[in-house]
Structures are given as C-alpha cells and as structure tokens.
C-alpha cells in the first residue's frame, strides 16, 4: 500500500461518519424543505411534488420573524456578557495567587455542567415563591413581587439568557487564559519600564496577544448560541407566549409538536443560512486563526 492509500484508509471511517451522520442528514433537510407533502407524510411516503410552499409559508409567517428577532436578542444577549465575564475571569486567574490550580478549576467548572442540569438548577434558583433569588430580592427590599422569571413573558428571555451566560463564559475564560499564557512576561516589563499604566498595558500588550483567539471564541460561541437547544427547551420550551422561541426551538416544535416536517426543514435551512452568513462575515478572522 502506498502512502496515499494508507492515509486515505485511515481517513475513511471519519469520512463515512461525516458523510453518513452529518452530510446525508443535511441533504435530507434540504430535500424535505422543498417537498410538498403535508405533516409526517414526508417521512413514510416517497415525495411526489416539489415546490417552494414551505418557504413561502414560513417566510410569510410573522411568527418566523419574531423568532428571528428572539434569536438575535438571545445570541447577542448571551455572547456579549459571556465574553466580558470570561475576559475578566481570565485576567484575574492569570495573576499569581496561592491555590491557583484548584481555584482556576472551580471557576471554570460550569463549562462541564450539562445544559439540562444548568436549566433545572436555575429554574429552582428563580422559582417565583421559594426561589432564593426572589428571597434575596425581598430581603434586600429591591422587589417584593414574586416574579415568575421563567413564566413571565417580559422576563423569560432574560431568565433564559442567565443560565446560558453561566454555562458559556468558561469557554471564553479558557480560551483567553490560554492566550494570556503565551504573552511573554518581558513585554509587560518593557511596558512597565516605559511608564505605561495598566489600561495602556491592557490595550497595547494584553489585547494584541489575545485578540485572535478571543475573536474566534466569539464567532464559535455565537454559532453555538444560534442553535442552543438544551437550556431553552428544558426551562421554558420556547414559551411563555413564544417569548423565548428562537429559530432552533421553533424548528424543533414545528417538527415534533406540530409534525410539520416540511416547514421545520425550511426553518432549519434558514437557520443554517444565517449561520453561513455569520461565517462569511467572519471569514477573515477565521482564516487567520485556522489556516
């Protein structure tokens, strides 16, 4: 066997896996989005008629556009605070202090918590009557109302964003912490000798050192937030009154609550298009970091 054949043989299982378990499903979702069959018929029967009806019905539905807005609010509302918190945590953890290894581990622990677990814990923290958050608000006289954070239309999106931030800031912290450790110490010493203050040191030494990985982490997290399912579905299921229904949740509900596979697929394709648009917009930093 020559080198090329050997290299290809090693790759074959991965290619089969990606083609069969990612590529083929993608082909299916695009196919189904153009199928003019009602409900679950698309699954069991061969598709006879093709057309754009699913797209017309989805795009002319104002609820779809509500979901687009909810998705954007959710993504931005999750990513911006996660990034800032992650940056702060990373800068603090990068300093010298006793018990560093143990404390660093504890601070980043939420990364490993399964989304559903995070969801049930936050449901309990924010329970209207017995939740500790409302208790603390009452005790500090901030608010006496028993706010139903996850059940109130006005607060639900905020309530869903909080556990999402809690789960996603460690990824930023990990990425930035890794990058911080590659910045040579003498750069700081030089900046110090030149009389730079801490703000100047941050913008002239720290930020250039972490910019690439940080931007990449923002893009990846935005893509992940775009399709977040676990936390939203396990806390609110998209409700109340669709206040937390992002495109990902909407596609899932169309498919598995209304059994509208065609419409669900069309929404799925639109979500992928949105993700692709994000990747294209972020092409330059991506290329710089990956290739």
């Amino acid at each position: 066997m020559n080198d090329r054949a050997f290299a290809f043989a090693l790759l074959t299982p991965a290619i089969l896996c990606v083609v069969g378990l990612v590529g083929w499903p993608m082909v299916q979702i695009v196919t189904l989005s153009f199928a003019e069959s009602k409900g679950l018929a698309a699954i069991s029967m061969p598709i006879r008629a093709w057309g754009l009806n699913n797209y017309i019905s989805v795009l002319s539905d104002p609820e779809t556009w509500d979901s687009v807005v909810t998705t954007i609010l959710y993504v931005v509302g999750t990513i911006v605070p996660s990034f800032l918190i992650g940056l702060g945590v990373a800068l603090l953890l990068n300093r010298q202090f006793p018990l560093r290894r143990a404390l660093r581990c504890l601070a980043l622990l939420p990364w490993a918590a399964p989304g559903v677990l995070v969801s049930v814990v936050f449901l309990w923290l924010f329970d209207p009557s017995y939740g500790v958050v409302n208790y603390l608000l009452r005790a500090t006289s901030v608010s006496n109302a028993d706010v139903g954070w996850f059940t109130n239309e006005d607060t639900a999106l905020f309530a869903v964003i909080l556990p999402s931030i809690w789960k996603s800031f460690p990824f930023f912290a990990l990425t930035i912490l890794g990058a911080l450790q590659t910045i040579p110490e003498d750069l700081y010493e030089a900046a110090h000798t030149d009389g730079a203050n801490s703000l100047q040191r941050f913008f002239n030494v720290t930020w250039p050192g972490i910019r690439g990985p940080a931007v990449l982490a923002i893009i990846l997290n935005a893509l992940w937030a775009l399709r977040e399912f676990d936390i939203i579905f396990a806390t609110t299921g998209g409700g109340p009154a669709r206040a937390t229904e992002t495109l990902g949740i909407r596609a899932y509900i169309e498919a598995f609550s209304y059994f509208e596979i065609g419409r669900a697929s069309a929404i799925g394709v639109l979500t992928i298009a949105l993700a692709a648009l994000m990747i294209i917009l972020a092409r330059k930093p991506l290329q710089k970091e990956f290739f």
Binding site: I15, V22, W24, I29, A42, I279
Partner: peptide, 25 residues
C-alpha cells in the same frame, strides 16, 4: 476532509436531529 470536519463541528445538533429522527424512523 479537514475543512469538512471543521465545518461540520459548527453544525448544530438541534438541526441535524430532525433528519436524524427521520433516518432512525
């Protein structure tokens, strides 16, 4: 292959679950 693998890790589980459900059915 490297590029396709890279791209597919950006694809969401919550989207491929619909075709996955159909394939499994």
């Amino acid at each position: 292959s490297g590029f396709i693998l890279l791209f597919s890790k950006m694809l969401p589980g919550s989207l491929i679950v619909i075709p996955f459900f159909i394939m499994a059915t």
